[in-house]
């Protein structure tokens, strides 16, 4: 269900969201902005994919959500990491690191 126009690499969306939320609970736009900022605009997340992913992660039990006031006193839905989510983030991070290192080694060999 991922939008082809999304710049996020296939399969990394979950990890990016979990990682972003590991700092503090955030609302949807906050997550999108954070990912875009931290990646210096490399990754753009469209809201359809983001909200679908959030729904999926929440169903999986990795996120919790609640409606509360934002800093500028608007109502927003805040997502936070559950304990299972923290564990999942560790698994996905380790997995990604392993794979990225392997790809990096392969690319070095090619060069």
């Amino acid at each position: 269900m991922s939008d082809p126009s999304t710049d996020v690499i296939q399969g990394t969306m979950d990890m990016l969201i979990l990682n972003t939320l590991s700092l503090e609970p955030m609302h949807g736009f906050g997550i999108a902005r954070r990912v875009e900022q931290v990646s210096r605009g490399v990754f753009k997340i469209n809201p359809g994919s983001l909200l679908t992913a959030l729904k999926r992660l929440e169903r999986a039990g990795w996120l919790d959500s609640e409606w509360r006031q934002t800093d500028n006193s608007r109502r927003a839905r805040y997502y936070s990491l559950t304990r299972a989510g923290k564990k999942q983030l560790e698994i996905e991070t380790a997995d990604w690191t392993r794979r990225a290192a392997a790809i990096a080694r392969l690319l070095r060999q090619e060069a």
Partner: peptide, 13 residues
């Protein structure tokens, strides 16, 4: 509501 809020936050941002 969530989409609206996304839009509002984006505009505020």
């Amino acid at each position: 509501e969530e989409l609206q809020q996304f839009y509002d936050e984006a505009a505020a941002d």
